[in-house]
Each structure stands twice: as C-alpha cells, then as structure tokens.
C-alpha cells in the first residue's frame, strides 16, 4: 500500500497495529508449494509469467514453517489426509487454507471411491473454495482476492466489536 499517497508527504498516519499487520499479511500471502494432483499444474501456471501472482505478493515457499496459506490442489485420499493435517499444524498462525478444485472441495469426480476424502474440509478448516476441475489460474486469482477480502473484513469486524464494547 502506498502510504504516502494516502497521507501526503512528510505526514503522519494513525492506524491500529492489527490493521497495519493485516494489511501487510494480505499483501504477502505466501503459499505452501505443495501440489497433490492435476490442480497443481494450474497452480504452477498461476505462478508463471502470464498470471504472475508475485505481483500480488503471492509467492511459494517450500516449507510449511514459512507459509501463510495452504492451497490444497488435488484429490486428498485417506493416506494423504494425515500428511495434509500435519502440514497444516506445522504452519505458524495466522494461517488460511484454500481448497482448489472439485476434489479438494467435495471429492470431485472420485467421490464414489471409498478411499477418497470427501472434501479437505473434513481434515483442515477451509477458508475459500475454488470450484473447477481444474480451476483456471484466473479462478485461483479470484479465490485469493476473496481471501484478502476475508482477512480485511475480519480485522475490521474485530475492531468494530471492540468499539461497541468500549
């Protein structure tokens, strides 16, 4: 956020620290580089030069310890579910989860098969569902914008609740 555009040159901006932190958080959503199945290819395209998520501060990290967002890109089966849960637990707070594609949302075309988890929300809490099989990178981009909106609105709700109490 270009602060000087809001405040003018050499001026002061009064802001709640958590609002400032949330602004920083939603503009640097680092996701865990963790592709499970087909959707991972579209996730890689999203990081590629045409869609270039880097311009939103959305960049991949190889380890859960440095990530803010987990994109579950693919079918989660019962063997994989333990790993997904463990990776989610290894991520530091605050953290968010995007269920990318039909499989991660509901089980998708494989939901008839008993080995497949019917949506990753049975394993970890999901913030944004992106439909599609696989979703286009534009759809994932829209999902990220929804997540940014969610982060913004929750911090504002929290502040409003505190004002009401005061």
């Amino acid at each position: 956020m270009a602060l000087d555009r809001l405040t003018g040159e050499n001026s002061v901006l009064f802001v709640r620290s958590e609002q400032l932190f949330d602004t920083a958080r939603r503009n640097s959503l680092w996701y865990l580089l963790f592709g499970i199945a087909c959707c991972a290819i579209e996730m890689m395209h999203a990081g590629g030069p045409r869609f270039d998520f880097d311009r939103f501060g959305i960049f991949h990290r190889g380890t859960p310890r440095q990530s803010d967002v987990m994109i579950v890109a693919g079918t989660v089966n019962k063997k994989m579910a333990h790993t997904v849960k463990r990776l989610y637990e290894q991520m530091p707070n605050p953290k968010w989860v995007i269920a990318m594609g039909a499989c991660a949302s509901t089980g998708g075309p494989f939901r008839m098969y008993p080995n497949v988890v019917l949506g990753v929300d049975q394993v970890v809490p999901v913030d944004v569902y992106v439909p599609g099989c696989p979703p286009r990178p534009e759809a994932l981009q829209y999902g990220f914008m929804q997540l940014q909106e969610k982060i913004r609105s929750t911090s504002e709700e929290r502040l409003a609740a505190r004002r009401d109490r005061a």
Binding site: A37, N77, F110
Partner: peptide, 9 residues
C-alpha cells in the same frame, strides 16, 4: 498417496 481408484471407477 494419490490412489483414487480410476481403474475401479
């Protein structure tokens, strides 16, 4: 880790 029963389905 990605067995999803394509042959069975």
């Amino acid at each position: 880790y990605l067995h999803r029963g394509i042959e069975k389905l």
